[in-house]
Design a protein around this nucleic acid. Structure first.
Lengths: 201, 201
DNA sequence: GTCATATGTTGTCACTGTAAACATAACGAG
DNA sequence: CTCGTTATGTTTACAGTGACAACATATGAC
C-alpha cells in the first residue's frame, strides 16, 4: 500500500514524516526535483529516468512511491494548485480584502501562470477523476474565489454566475498568455481584470 | 521541399490538388485520419504508427509530408482553428449580427470546445512560433472578435481591452469545462457569456 | 538475533519518434 | 517510346520511454 497517502507533505509537522528508509524521503525529493525541473526551462522535460537521476536513484525506484507516472504528475499538479492558492491568499491579505483584494487575487492568478508556466499548465491541464479523496490542492483557491465574490460584490444577483465569470476570465487570460496568443503585459492584465472584478466600465 | 505548402487544403479548388503520386493525397488523408481520431474517444491516441495504419501506409511515409510529428500536430491544430472560425461566423450570421450575434459567437466558441475537446485542446495548447507564415487558421476567429467588439459595443472606451476581456472569458470557460473543473451546462454558459458580451448586469 | 516488510537495483519488454538505405512510380526531355 | 530525375513509399534499425518481474538490501518489531 505505497500509494495510500497521496498528499505531498513537503513540510511535515515535525514528525519526521512517514517513510525514511533508504533515501530519507524519496517521495518529497522526487516532487521537489520535478518542481525544479518545471521551473527551469520552458520545455519542462520530465521523464522518469531523468527525474530519478536528479535524485540519485534508479528509475524504477519511483514505482515504490507512485503507482505510475500519471500519479507522479498528479502530485506535482496538486502542489502547483497549493502554491497558487497560497499566493492568492497572500495577495488578498496584502490588499486588505474587499474589491481591491478581489482584484489582487485575480491578478495573482494570472501572474502565477506567467511566472511558472509549466507548473500552471500541468496543474490545470490534468483531467480530474470524479472526486479525488486525498489532496485537493485547489480548495484554498476556490474558497477564496467564493469568499471574494461574496465580500467584493455583495449585491450581485447570482453569485454562482459571477464567480464562474471571474474565474473564467483570469483562467482564460492566463492560458492565452501561456500559449503565446497574447503577450505578457502586466498593465493590460490589470485593466482587463479590473473590468470585471472592479465592476468599472 | 516537401514542407513548403503548410496549409491543409482538404477541399481544394477543383485543381486536383498538388501531389497525387502513389497514394492520392497522403497529406490530406493523414490529417483527416487525425481529425477522426481526435473526435472519437476522449483520450485521442495519435501516434505516427497508428495514424499511418489508419491510412494504410507505412509509418515513415509520413515524413515525406511533414518534417516531424510536431508539424503534423501543427497542421491538425490549424484545421481546428479554421473550423472554430467557421462555426463562429455561422453563429454570427444566424443571430443577425449586433449584440445578439456577438453573444452567439462567444457561445459557439465554448460549444466547440465542448463538442470537440481533443481538437480544441490541441489547437490552443500549442506554442506559437514567432510568426508562422503559411496557415494561420485562427485569423477568421480573431477578425470576428474585433468586428464583434466594434459593432456590438460601439461606445466602449478601449476596444483592445474589451476584446481581450471577451476572448479571455470564453477561452477560460472552455478550458475549465475541458479540464472538468466545471460541468457542462449550456444555460449556465449562456448566462456567463451574456454577463460580459451583452453588457447585462 | 530473526524475520517480515518496505525500499532500491538490474534486466528486460513493448512501444515510440526518427533516421538511413533501398525500392518504385510518375513526369519531362531526348 | 526510352531514359533518367525526382517525388513518394518501405524496410530495417536505433535510441529513448514507461513499466513489469526478479532479485537485493536496509529497517524496525519481536
Amino acid at each position: 500500500m505505497t500509494d495510500k497517502d497521496n498528499s505531498v507533505n513537503l513540510k511535515s509537522d515535525g514528525a519526521k514524516a512517514a517513510g525514511a528508509y533508504h533515501h530519507g524521503d524519496l517521495r518529497a525529493a522526487v516532487i521537489a526535483a520535478g518542481l525544479a525541473r518545471l521551473q527551469s526551462g520552458d520545455d519542462g522535460e520530465l521523464g522518469l529516468r531523468a527525474l530519478a537521476r536528479d535524485v540519485g536513484v534508479s528509475a524504477t525506484a519511483l514505482y515504490r512511491h507512485f503507482p505510475d507516472k500519471e500519479a507522479l504528475l498528479d502530485a506535482l499538479a496538486d502542489e502547483g494548485l497549493r502554491r497558487l492558492g497560497a499566493l492568492q491568499a497572500q495577495a488578498w491579505l496584502k490588499a486588505g480584502g474587499g474589491i481591491a483584494g478581489f482584484k489582487a487575487t485575480g491578478a495573482a492568478y494570472v501572474r502565477f501562470a506567467h511566472d511558472e508556466p509549466a507548473l500552471f499548465r500541468l496543474s490545470f491541464t490534468r483531467q480530474m477523476p470524479d472526486r479525488k479523496e486525498g489532496g485537493d490542492g485547489g480548495e484554498v483557491a476556490y474558497n477564496l474565489l467564493r469568499a471574494g465574490v461574496g465580500e467584493a460584490l455583495p449585491g450581485v444577483k447570482d453569485p454562482d454566475v459571477a464567480a464562474l465569470h471571474a474565474w473564467s476570465l483570469v483562467h482564460g487570460l492566463a492560458m492565452l498568455i501561456l500559449d503565446r496568443r497574447i503577450d505578457w503585459d502586466e498593465a493590460l492584465v490589470d485593466r482587463v481584470v479590473g473590468l470585471t472584478f472592479g465592476g468599472v466600465d
